[in-house]
Design a protein around this nucleic acid. Structure first.
Lengths: 122, 122
DNA sequence: AAAATATGCAACCTTTTGGTTACAAAATTA
DNA sequence: TAATTTTGTAACCAAAAGGTTGCATATTTT
């Protein structure tokens, strides 16, 4: 039974659950009301999210409130961000290309150009 | 056949494949060599990654090179980042708590404190 | 041309996933 | 106390996922 964050957020229903409780904790029945699958199905999703640490259950009377613990999303964030350079590189190239194009065009139409319209990217 | 980026990166083998070809394109056999499953299994993973746009296949003679197209990871990045406030908030609270504690402690032990050791977070 | 190499894919199998119904147990309410 | 509400979980099912072997096809190599 693999139970990591990547697998947990792969399911669209689970992502929707996370979205629901991100703002405020909700009990199991309330979460269920927003889906057209059974309470048991939703409960299983909640259990998976609990097992990988994305949510925590707090009992209050006969109800259990699901509280989002989104620190765990750091794992995903870290993994994704390590590749940002690989998809940013091309955008930068396009940027340079466009701004070169712009310069050429500028010098063709008007001789004066202070360069303020040049696109930049940090 | 659901084929979205979240589902694609849920499998650890596929994440490993992405990692391999992020730096330079590799042909199918070379990718396969690094795993202990069959070429067919790896091929299926590559197909899934292709179908959701994370990699592109370029034929070159009898070989096919797999090239990473990681722009699609933006979908994941965007989804995760929208929640950052929810897990950053608590760290900030802890930070404030710790720095308050520090102040109290400082004023108890030595009267003089220029505050340079105070923890800050932007 | 023949052999070797690199790949795509069908057919099949087992395990996992996501869902269901049915029932039990604990807490609240009437 | 009896009825209601909220939840946990067992038992079961169909479909999807991840894997395998075997074979066909296209390109090089020899």
């Amino acid at each position: 039974m693999r139970r990591d964050v990547f697998q947990a957020i792969a399911d669209p229903t689970r992502r929707a659950i996370i979205n629901m409780i991100a703002h405020q904790p909700l009990n199991v029945n309330t979460v269920t009301e927003n889906f057209d699958v059974s309470r048991t199905a939703v409960y299983k999703h909640i259990k998976i999210l609990t097992e990988c640490g994305l949510i925590e259950i707090k009992q209050q009377g006969r109800e259990r409130f699901c509280e989002a613990k989104l620190q765990k999303l750091n794992e995903v964030s870290d993994w994704v961000e390590q590749y940002r350079q690989f998809w940013k590189a091309r955008l930068d190239s396009l940027d340079n290309y466009l701004s070169e194009l712009q310069s050429k065009n500028d010098s063709k139409t008007k001789k004066k150009n202070d360069g303020t319209s040049k696109r930049t990217r940090k």
